[in-house]
């Protein structure tokens, strides 16, 4: 069941910058969707439109069955946002600002719930501290607590782990998993592709205002994933022998490592024939390993390919 339906969304800023060139996207209920893209690709603009912070130039967004313009109250009540920037009220206490957020979103006070959220985020002991006295990581926790205070069904996390230490990142992913178990839909943008790889059900790649790809993460990695075979040679090679020019090989580590990149889905991967050829040429190796390319490699190759096309 779709929880967010985006149709024909475009955004041209007053400066003339075309941040979004027609985006269509459907997010399913309960999934974790990762939006990847380089800086300035339009990730934040897209999120800001859905959350009501930026007006779309054209197009419609329906959140949980409610049009975000015509029925903004119902739509926004369902949505929580953790923005990228650490914007907080410096002079407020943690407890006051989180309580404020819940009221702002039209929910009656619920001290027990606020207490639980603050405890989950390790903020309870500091509840009476002013926000300006907190570290960057703690401020990030406060912003998450604010976004969760009104029990949203849809949570947007814009670069949630930018500049965050390992511990908080781990806590945050534990929290995301917990929220997903409760049925919360999570849309996140990130630069850390390994996070998308670890957490997301589906991945969308946005580039220069266009969604160039939306795919199940596993399918994507299978489809675009390449494997790399690395051979640790006994004797370093000065140059690649001409006999091996049929394979896509590179020499690494001063000739001590031979890398072969291949398509794992192909009928003929070229691995057995390469090994035989090496034997024929008397090139010995002491160890070998293969590695599935990461989402990051896929992402880089996508962005790169698009750059060439443009």
């Amino acid at each position: 069941m779709p929880v967010i339906e985006i149709q024909g969304l475009t955004k041209t800023y007053k400066s003339g910058l075309q941040a979004l060139k027609r985006v269509d996207l459907t997010i399913e209920k309960g999934e974790i969707f990762a939006l990847l893209g380089p800086n300035g690709a339009g990730k934040t603009t897209l999120i800001s439109i859905v959350c009501g912070i930026v007006n779309a130039t054209t197009g419609t967004v329906v959140a949980d069955g409610h049009d975000i313009r015509k029925d903004f109250r119902a739509a926004r009540t369902k949505i929580g946002l953790v923005p990228q920037e650490l914007t907080t009220d410096a002079f407020e206490t943690i407890l006051a600002t989180v309580t404020f957020s819940r009221g702002l979103f039209g929910k009656p006070g619920n001290p027990a719930l606020i207490e639980q959220i603050l405890k989950d985020l390790s903020l309870w002991d500091k509840r009476d501290s002013k926000i300006m006295t907190l570290s960057g990581g703690m401020k990030r926790r406060v912003m998450i607590a604010k976004a969760l205070s009104h029990e949203p069904d849809i949570l947007f996390l814009d670069e949630p782990t930018a500049g965050v230490d390992v511990e908080l990142r781990r806590d945050m992913w534990a929290m995301v998993r917990k929220l997903r178990e409760r049925g919360v839909t999570i849309i996140l943008t990130t630069h850390y592709i390994e996070e998308a790889e670890e957490m997301a059900d589906r991945v969308g790649v946005i580039l220069k205002g266009e969604l160039i790809l939306v795919e199940e993460k596993t399918a994507l990695m299978k489809k675009l994933g390449k494997k790399t075979l690395t051979l640790n040679l006994i004797e370093p090679l000065a140059a690649l022998p001409a006999e091996l020019s049929d394979w896509d090989l590179t020499l690494k580590a001063d000739g001590g490592e031979l890398e072969y990149s291949f398509d794992a889905q192909a009928d003929d991967t070229g691995v057995p024939s390469l090994i035989r050829a090496l034997e024929r040429l008397n090139i010995g190796f002491k160890d070998l390993n293969t590695r599935q390319s990461s989402l990051e490699d896929i992402f880089v190759s996508l962005v790169h390919r698009d750059g060439e096309a443009a």
């Binding site: 959350c51 109250r73 920037e85 914007t87 907080t88 009220d89 702002l104 039209g106």
Partner: peptide, 14 residues
């Protein structure tokens, strides 16, 4: 100025 307006804009308040 501080950017906290994001919360007001994203909230269900007219």
């Amino acid at each position: 100025f501080t950017g906290t307006i994001y919360e007001i804009l994203s909230a269900p308040v007219s």
